[in-house]
Simulated assay, not measured.
Amino acid sequence: MIYDNHAGQAPARPRFEPVLLRSFIAVVEARSFTRAARHLGLRQSTVSQHVARLEALAGRRLIARDTHRVSPTPDGDALLDFARRLLEAEARIDAYFAASALRGRIRIGASEDFVFSALPEVLADFAGRHPEVDLELTVGLSQTLYAGFDAGELDLIFAKRRAGDRRGRVAWAEELVWIARPGKRPVAGQPVPLVLYPPPSVTRERALEAMDRAHLPWRIACSSGSLSGLRAAALAGLGFAAHAARLIPPGLAPVPPDAGLPPLGLTEFVVIGPEGRHPAAALAEALLSASDRIRSAGITPGGG
């Protein structure tokens, strides 16, 4: 703990270290110390120690723990917003003073999931801070982006976690949900019409596996390689799509749980790229620090 020991002055409050705040945010978002540790690449005991130190510094209970769930206390909810803003400010400060050293080209690949998110604004902010860096953006399916990265055609990818691939840093984890035109529900006794990306697609695989596990008949009502195409088909009422809960395209809404469609589980969005002095490493930090801004922008009033 760091205190001001000048004579006649009250001691300063101890510093809330970024590493402690990152662990706290991960626990709140994952609702689990175990999942938070996995996302951060740390031991569970280390994450628990970070939260305990943070609670000692705050002098407040920040996380409520019981046998069923882990959730923030009212003080924890208050700290959560402050913590996110502090970490984002720290990233902006680092980026600002490193601006003169950044130059070159970054070939970034972004998942179709981000078409209607704030990702373009985040990239524009980065380009404005680093005018000597040229950005080349490729939007595509996550599986295709992995192939491009592995082939050396992309420097950085921002996509859904591929099954069995543990590379990258987790920006966030959230539920995949079924979405459709508001009010649309499956018709009993008929195959469920699905609106899906073509293979290879992480989301397509998850959706079909869930349908098969639930022994529900299905048919492909529309297949499109773009999120704009899937949105148009879903808006037309052609069928149901699987999508990240906080990145739902405008005009569409989550299908109610009582509609009978199977749960799709969690998916992780990861940033995979180089480290060190490569310009792409700075962009990766910017994306991770702006993750809350990117995912929250996908929710539109009245449209899911």
Score class of each variant (00 low, 15 high):
residue 205 E to C: 01
residue 196 L to H: 00
residue 122 V to K: 00
residue 61 R to Y: 00
residue 270 V to M: 01
residue 5 N to R: 00
residue 101 A to F: 06
residue 200 P to T: 11
residue 169 R to Q: 15
residue 303 G to P: 04
residue 19 V to K: 13
residue 55 E to V: 02
residue 152 G to N: 03
residue 124 A to W: 02
residue 244 A to H: 14
residue 190 Q to D: 02
residue 118 A to H: 05
residue 62 L to W: 02
residue 234 A to P: 10
residue 114 F to P: 09
residue 36 A to C: 10
residue 260 G to V: 12
residue 144 T to S: 13
residue 277 R to P: 09
residue 197 Y to R: 03
residue 114 F to Y: 15
residue 85 R to G: 15
residue 9 Q to T: 09
residue 4 D to G: 11
residue 176 L to R: 05
residue 227 L to M: 13
residue 187 V to H: 02
residue 64 A to F: 11
residue 255 V to F: 04
residue 212 D to C: 04
residue 40 L to A: 14
residue 37 A to L: 12
residue 91 A to W: 00
residue 304 G to E: 08
residue 272 I to E: 05
residue 226 S to C: 02
residue 229 G to H: 06
residue 68 H to G: 08
residue 253 A to I: 07
residue 159 A to D: 03
residue 234 A to C: 14
residue 66 D to C: 01
residue 152 G to H: 06
residue 54 L to E: 09
residue 93 I to F: 07
residue 20 L to M: 07
residue 13 R to S: 13
residue 18 P to F: 02
residue 205 E to A: 15
residue 181 R to C: 06
residue 115 V to Y: 10
residue 262 P to Q: 04
residue 230 L to S: 10
residue 187 V to P: 01
residue 125 D to E: 14
residue 236 A to C: 03
residue 148 G to C: 03
residue 65 R to F: 05
residue 35 R to P: 00
residue 213 R to T: 15
residue 281 A to K: 04
residue 303 G to F: 08
residue 38 R to I: 14
residue 249 P to S: 10
residue 167 R to Y: 13
residue 9 Q to I: 05
residue 37 A to S: 11
residue 289 S to I: 00
residue 24 F to Y: 15
residue 114 F to R: 02
residue 276 G to D: 07
residue 222 C to W: 10
residue 21 L to T: 00
residue 284 A to Q: 04
residue 56 A to W: 01
residue 54 L to F: 13
residue 117 S to C: 10
residue 235 L to A: 15
residue 138 T to E: 09
residue 45 S to P: 00
residue 279 P to C: 08
residue 267 T to C: 08
residue 213 R to C: 08
residue 26 A to N: 03
residue 299 I to S: 07
residue 210 A to I: 14
residue 296 S to P: 00
residue 293 R to D: 01
residue 110 A to L: 08
residue 192 V to S: 00
residue 253 A to R: 13
residue 179 I to K: 03
residue 73 T to E: 03
residue 286 A to K: 00
residue 58 A to Q: 05
residue 96 Y to M: 04
residue 122 V to D: 00
residue 224 S to V: 06
residue 121 E to T: 12
residue 109 G to E: 07
residue 4 D to S: 07
residue 291 S to G: 14
residue 106 I to D: 12
residue 20 L to N: 05
residue 170 V to M: 08
residue 97 F to L: 13
residue 209 E to D: 13
residue 86 L to S: 12
residue 270 V to E: 00
residue 143 Q to R: 11
residue 34 T to F: 03
residue 230 L to V: 05
residue 188 A to Q: 11
residue 169 R to W: 03
residue 118 A to V: 07
residue 165 D to I: 07
residue 233 A to S: 13
residue 120 P to W: 09
residue 288 L to R: 02
residue 195 V to N: 08
residue 75 D to E: 13
residue 168 G to T: 09
residue 173 A to K: 01
residue 179 I to T: 06
residue 202 V to S: 13
residue 175 E to A: 14
residue 3 Y to E: 11
residue 1 M to K: 01
residue 181 R to A: 14
residue 251 G to S: 12
residue 260 G to C: 12
residue 64 A to E: 14
residue 5 N to E: 11
residue 255 V to L: 02
residue 125 D to Q: 05
residue 95 A to F: 00
residue 172 W to V: 11
residue 194 L to G: 01
residue 171 A to N: 01
residue 163 A to C: 01
residue 155 D to V: 07
residue 168 G to M: 08
residue 260 G to A: 10
residue 210 A to R: 08
residue 244 A to S: 14
residue 273 G to I: 08
residue 161 R to A: 15
residue 53 R to C: 07
residue 41 G to T: 12
residue 204 R to D: 10
residue 86 L to A: 13
